[in-house]
Design a protein around this nucleic acid. Structure first.
Length: 573
RNA sequence: GGGUCGGUAGCUCAGCUGGUAGAGCAGCGGACUUUUAAUCCGCCGGUCGUGGGUUCGAUCCCCGCCCGACUCACCA
């Protein structure tokens, strides 16, 4: 291996398995075949396929159709002249559900329930079926390893302990190939050899760094991780259905913006070579979505990524998924009702109840109940400061007093900070941690709401709310500012703030002003952090548990340091 | 960026302020014809994150660095 080559990790276990692949090739066989088509899943086997045949002894009438199943070998258990393969396929979660349902039936019949905690199905392979194959796979040489992907042919049956299983065989009682198999087709076949060994079966994979960096391993061995991401997919599908039934149009707007806007946040900067212009990854789709409402798409929503060049912690990932929706002729109070319907409906669909558990399942003291039942609590920013900040209605407009209160929390803000920002800072500090139950926080100061409509009753405030639960922000919504003159002034204030060093301030967007000049109907819009919503609905306390590939520092590999760091490939693009 | 804790076999973890490392699982060899974290016998497997320092001698003590978890600050 020459200098600059990427070193492959190799250890003895891997060399052993590579040798097994070499042996297959040497025997003139395909090491990576792709011609095995499954006919059934593990869930189908568990859910009753096994009862279609006599439980035992196995029935193999001429013409019986073979069942073909695939999956990854999770455990091998050889006992003399029989072997058991535990296999997992895509139906893993459904296997658990099917097994639980089957156990209910067993209990009703006064039989002992079995295996309610495993997402695998079982293949039973008896040496008598094919001695050469059995020995080649499971005995001397042991070409089959935990982690391999296999294709199995056989007939469903129940073992002596009653577990639905696949009896590996390709022949009927007459010794003829089962219907649906090719002559001489082996009953167990390695489709893909795994070279790396899987984590230990009992303790599994727990190291968070490895789990996030090698999510593929995490998904193989941790059922609950797979379940979380299946739920995430269901949640997003349910959200789409919710808006489709309300006559919303799903749209996609640009991820690359030449002007930063729609939220107060630091952007990622990039550059387009052909146009020779700077571009920013979007921090929010808001201004484009409202342009669409101007264009007559009166109800639109988008589910897509936002990018914010800010810190990473339990609630923040630099790229995150945002749902934004806009409805013409609605107000922010209408959206509260909509969100209540959406959230309580999601909880019902996912859990069959609006009562959610929040907190570490292993620590009863840390557990809390979150009720998604409508209506949600409502509190204004001012009320929150009064209730948890110890200020009365007059005092919360006293900048010096607000600063003193913030100082008590160890927070100091620049001298030019407007009162509205001080109020919000204090609210976030003293009130946020109390907002475990779903709560609409209403009436935000105008200084922190550059795109919101001013309150008719008090121009210092806006028709805006944020929804909190589990102690953090989930949603942000307001009646949209559709007065182009007012919007122009707000943008100017943002531009001034930016010139003054506020890296989160928005840019002036004259095209957006032009759009408002054509006329944005009275509209309300809302943004919902999907990752955080999934956290609450799946009881995960870290955003990294609900994002398949969270951002991590690039992996440092000792063997690749030095002159391999700048290969030509990096400069070609 | 600050604080706390951590990095030892493929995986999960032990290792007594110092004498160059252990277990279980996985792997390999063997026994076992219905196992469920199977069991039993034997074997293989380690630059103890990394670079220095102290010492006759460092996984252990000291310093720097890298990586991570938690937490605080900033932020959605």
């Amino acid at each position: 291996m020459g200098r600059g080559d990427v070193m492959l990790e190799r250890n003895d276990l891997m060399e052993q398995r590579l040798a097994k692949i070499a042996a297959v090739v040497e025997a003139g066989q395909q090491a990576y075949p792709n011609d095995f088509k499954p006919s059934h899943t593990g869930a189908e086997l568990i859910a009753g396929l096994a009862d279609q045949l006599a439980p035992h002894p196995i029935e193999r009438a001429t013409g019986t159709a073979a069942v073909r199943m695939v999956g990854r070998v999770i455990a091998i258990n050889r006992k003399g002249k029989v072997g058991f393969l535990r296999i997992r396929d895509r139906s893993a979660s459904a296997v658990i559900a099917a097994r639980q349902a089957a156990n209910v039936a067993r209990e009703a019949a006064n039989m002992a329930p079995r295996d309610s905690d495993t997402s695998t199905y079982q293949v039973f392979f008896r040496r008598n079926e094919d001695e050469d194959l059995f020995d080649a796979l499971l005995k001397s040489g042991q070409s089959l390893d935990v982690g391999d992907i296999v294709g199995c042919i056989g007939l469903p049956f129940r073992t002596q302990t009653g577990e639905p299983s696949l009896w590996a065989t390709s022949l009927d009682a007459e010794g003829n190939p089962l219907s649906g198999t090719a002559a001489g087709e082996p009953c167990v076949r390695i489709l893909t050899k795994s070279i790396r060994s899987l984590p230990e079966k009992f303790h599994g994979l727990t190291d968070k760094q490895t789990r996030y960096r090698q999510r593929y391993v995490d998904l193989i061995v941790n059922d609950d991780v797979r379940a979380t991401f299946e739920r995430r997919a269901h949640i997003i599908a349910a959200i789409r259905a919710f808006f489709h039934t309300r006559d919303y149009l799903e749209v996609e707007t640009p991820m690359m913006h030449s002007i930063v806007g729609g939220a107060t946040a630091r952007p990622f900067a990039t550059h387009h070579n052909a146009l020779g212009i700077p571009l920013f990854l979007r921090v929010a789709p808001e201004l484009h979505l409202k342009r669409l409402v101007v264009g007559g798409l009166e109800r639109v929503f988008e589910i897509n990524r936002n990018f914010r060049n800010e810190g990473i912690d339990l609630q923040h990932n630099p790229e995150f998924t945002m749902l934004e929706f806009y409805e013409a002729y609605a107000t922010y109070t209408d959206l509260m009702v909509l969100i209540e319907q959406l959230f309580s409906g999601l909880a019902q669909q996912l859990h069959g109840t609006t009562d959610l558990v929040w907190g570490d399942a292993n620590d009863p003291d840390a557990q809390q109940q979150i009720s998604m039942a409508a209506p949600f609590a409502r509190i204004s920013v001012y009320e929150g400061i009064q209730r948890w900040g110890g200020l009365d209605a007059e005092q919360l407009h006293d900048a010096a007093l607000l600063r003193a209160k913030l100082a008590e929390q160890g927070i100091t803000l620049p001298a030019a900070t407007p009162v509205g920002k001080l109020q919000m800072a204090l609210f976030e500090t003293v009130a946020e941690p109390h907002l475990i139950q779903p709560t609409f926080v209403t009436d935000f100061p105008v200084e922190v709401s550059p795109l919101s409509r001013k309150k008719d009753s008090d121009p210092r405030l806006t028709d805006r709310f944020e929804m909190y639960m589990a102690g953090f922000e989930i949603a942000n919504a307001f009646s949209e500012l559709n007065d182009s003159v007012d919007q122009h002034e707000r943008f100017q204030a943002q531009s001034l703030a930016k010139a003054g060093g506020d890296v989160e301030a928005m840019d002036m967007d004259m095209d957006y002003i032009r759009a408002l000049e054509y006329g944005l109907p009275p509209t309300a819009g809302c943004g919902i952090g999907i990752d955080r919503l999934v956290m609450v609905l799946t009881n995960n306390q870290s955003i990294r548990e609900v994002i398949l590939f969270p951002l991590l520092r690039p992996e440092q590999r000792r063997s690749e340091s030095g002159d391999a760091a700048t290969p030509a490939a990096l400069t070609e693009g």
